[in-house]
Simulated scan of single mutants.
Amino acid sequence: MASVSAPNSLQGLPLLDVDILRTFIAIAETGSFTRAAQQVFRTPSAVSMQIKRLEETLGRAMFVREPRQVHLTPEGEILLGYARQLLELNDEAVGQFLSPQVGGTVRLGAPSDMGTRYLPAIIAQFTRAYPAVQVNVRLGRSPDLMRRLDVGELDLALLVSEAGRTPAIGAEPIYSEALVWAGREGGVAWNRTPLPLAVADRGCAWRRIAMEALNRAGMRYRIAYTSEHAEAHVAALAADIAIAPLPRGLVQPPLRVIEHEEGGLPPLAEYALSLKRIPARGAAAEALAQHLIDHFASQAVG
């Protein structure tokens, strides 16, 4: 969708793109192009291009860019109010047509890191479009989510595996992302022997990918910090007591990507995200499944 309608609109004025307004609001609320990119499922470069188009359309700078933060200009503050109103009207209009057709409850399972990085924004967008649908989310490891699917406690689940490996039977690959070695900026944990790792417990795809890579490279390591939650790994890295395999999108200051050439660290494989759903769970479950697929497809393309 183009951000500007041709000047042939009724008043001769351009039309603002709803997707760009969502990105604009995300930047204003997070103070970061990178964090906003994660919320709207695009790359930072795609987000920068969207804001460039917005500023060119309106002929005003919307943000003051600083090394570690961005903040709104006075013109940006004015636009923020209008942008929120426009999005609310858009979502209300769409919901008026969709809500009578789809309703009910959907039980969704997802990995813990998805519960903080992606799901809040995804579920918020979905419930605005389908206000009659209630979404109940359970976070956990993929093996546990698979078990809950099998016994009927979930309707659909996002599952993590190593890219290139056959996903669980009936699961549909919808996204993949690079894993990188991460540590504290200026830290020394990555240079210790044995290498201290922060990982989840057994059954985690990130853990398996990292340990298999280290074993193939013949590098000594120890499990220094174990948690099921990515936020705990980030905290351990920030304290420089370990390094960890993380998706590149999770690596934010004070952390940095440790390039494998630096300390002879082996490169890491990508991890894959698959969607598995229980058949014949109804229109609400199918609507959420398609919503998830569409969002991660836009992230991959962005």
Rank of each mutant, 00 (worst) to 15 (best):
V4L: 05
A6W: 12
P7N: 07
N8D: 13
S9P: 02
G12V: 11
L13M: 14
L15C: 06
L21V: 11
R22E: 15
T34D: 14
R35W: 04
A37W: 01
P44H: 01
R53N: 10
L54S: 06
E55F: 08
E55K: 10
T57F: 00
A61R: 15
F63P: 02
E66Y: 06
V70M: 12
T73E: 03
P74Q: 07
G76Q: 10
L80R: 15
R84A: 05
V94D: 11
V94E: 15
G95S: 10
F97W: 14
L98H: 12
Q101E: 14
G103P: 08
R107L: 11
R107M: 07
R107T: 04
G109I: 12
M114Q: 14
G115H: 06
L119A: 05
L119T: 10
I123N: 04
A124T: 10
A124Q: 12
A124G: 12
T127P: 00
A129G: 00
P131H: 01
V133G: 08
V133S: 01
Q134N: 07
S142H: 01
V151C: 00
V160W: 00
A163R: 08
G164C: 04
P167M: 04
A171R: 09
P173R: 11
P173N: 13
I174C: 07
I174A: 09
S176K: 14
S176D: 14
A178W: 04
V180P: 08
W181C: 02
G183A: 14
V188W: 04
V188T: 15
R192D: 01
V199R: 05
A205T: 11
A210M: 06
M211N: 03
E212A: 08
E212T: 12
G218D: 09
R222T: 10
R222W: 03
T226Y: 00
S227E: 03
E228H: 09
H229G: 01
A230M: 14
A244K: 04
L246P: 04
P247M: 07
P247Q: 06
R256V: 11
P266Y: 07
L268Q: 05
A269V: 00
I278Q: 07
A285L: 02
E286A: 08
D294G: 04
A300R: 15
G302I: 02
